[in-house]
């Protein structure tokens, strides 16, 4: 039980840098498309790590199922809205930033 708990803690600690780097990317990246990359990928992976860590620590199947459901919903929502934002930015003819 203790091993499960500790490996859950390790997973949660692994997830935190992803969130922080998602925010850093949102601030630092040069244009809307690259910021979308930072937002979707880093945050989903961070949330996945935290969800897996908490599921290992919870020790109950119902809580694990609910955590996975939350992650799945966030995954669907963020990938769909990411595509929508990128698509309407393309329709508005916003040019991607390129290395000049």
């Amino acid at each position: 039980m203790n091993i499960l708990y500790n490996s859950g803690t390790v997973l949660i600690i692994l997830g935190l840098p992803f969130f922080l780097s998602g925010t850093v990317g949102l601030i630092r990246f040069p244009d809307i498309y690259t910021r979308l990359h930072a937002l979707t990928k880093a945050d989903n992976v961070g949330l996945g790590c935290i969800v897996c860590g908490l599921a290992l620590q919870s020790g109950s199947w119902a809580v694990t199922a609910k955590l996975l459901l939350i992650w799945l919903l966030v995954l669907i929502a963020s990938s769909a809205s990411c595509h929508l934002i990128a698509r309407s930015a393309m329709h508005k003819n916003i040019q991607p930033w390129t290395r000049s």
């Binding site: 969130f19 925010t23 949102l26 989903n44 908490l54 955590l67 939350i70 809205s81 309407s88």
Partner: peptide, 26 residues
């Protein structure tokens, strides 16, 4: 600069809020 950037940040708050709520719940 664009409105979509602001909206994306609101989405980031949603994801971070979910993570904070999960951690607070534990």
């Amino acid at each position: 600069p664009t409105a979509a950037d602001r909206m994306m940040t609101a989405q980031l708050f949603g994801t971070c809020g979910v993570a904070i709520l999960l951690l607070l719940s534990a």
